[in-house]
């Protein structure tokens, strides 16, 4: 079995020891980071600390040293964001810390994205995300987007106050077949159902998968509106997206 002591970076070791509690998550992260090179661990550690300048510097250095862009993304950036997501879920850090880490992630991805795009590496999927019509709460949706990007997805962000027609148009204009809807108001939750209906009317319901979330939304409500899945938080959103992406892979 891989050991915590197999991880070179002090910050990463301390983070795993201090903040991870679920055995399967400890195991997964110990395994992941012991496999990752010390340079990738440094990138992950800087990302966890929200240090965008260091992430930016280390990412370009690694690329210059010939490290593959995918390796930097998976073992550095995504791995670091995974720890941030768990700390947020468990209440060790709060929205500001996640936003700052996401900023660091962006600094790294700015180097990675053009290379991946040019080399034709496929993202694991594309997700359309929007807060439903009448609702302007977007913090939760944006965190989901950051974690989705951190999980290797491409995301088309429709912003807030998104009408069923705008969701439809986004699907028609893109390759994306996975849709995430967020609602924080009881008054706007029915607009999730309206959006699903609009896809039925347009004859597109079978081609797409819907995820729903937001504080007042429940799994039962998700079922009621005909969604394909419900996610309680940003990590659950990524897990769900990965699962639903298999259905719509094309």
């Amino acid at each position: 079995m891989v050991q915590l002591s197999g991880i070179a970076n002090d910050t990463i070791r301390a983070e795993i020891e201090e903040f991870l509690e679920r055995p399967e998550e400890i195991e997964r992260n110990v395994e992941l980071f012991s496999r990752a090179s010390p340079e990738m661990q440094d990138i992950a550690a800087a990302l966890i600390e929200g240090d965008n300048v260091t992430v930016d510097r280390l990412t370009s250095k690694a690329l210059a040293d010939g490290v593959h862009a995918l390796e930097i993304m998976d073992d550095g950036l995504i791995a670091g964001m995974g720890i941030v997501g768990i700390k947020f879920r468990e209440g060790y850090v709060f929205v500001p810390e996640v936003l700052v880490s996401a900023r660091a992630m962006k600094a790294g991805m700015a180097h990675i994205e053009p290379i991946l795009a040019a080399s034709g590496v496929e993202p694991i999927g594309t997700v359309i995300m929007g807060t439903v019509q009448g609702d302007l709460h977007d913090i939760g949706k944006n965190l989901c987007i950051m974690m989705l990007r951190g999980g290797g997805f491409t995301v088309i962000d429709l912003g807030v106050n998104t009408s069923p027609d705008e969701f439809l148009a986004a699907v028609k204009d893109s390759e994306a077949r996975l849709i995430g809807m967020s609602a924080l108001l009881t008054t706007t939750m029915p607009n999730m159902a309206r959006t699903v209906e609009a896809f039925k009317d347009a004859g597109l319901r079978e081609q797409v998968r819907f995820m729903v979330g937001g504080a007042p939304v429940t799994p039962e409500f998700g079922e009621e509106v005909g969604a394909d899945g419900y996610g309680k938080d940003a990590l659950a959103c990524v897990a769900l997206a990965k699962q639903l992406a298999l259905d719509v892979r094309r």
């Binding site: 929200g50 929205v95 500001p96 810390e97 936003l99 700052v100 900023r103 913090i139 944006n142």
Partner: peptide, 11 residues
């Protein structure tokens, strides 16, 4: 804007 505001609580 809530995100810029919250980020600056740290930055």
């Amino acid at each position: 804007g809530i995100e810029n505001f919250l980020m600056d609580t740290i930055l």
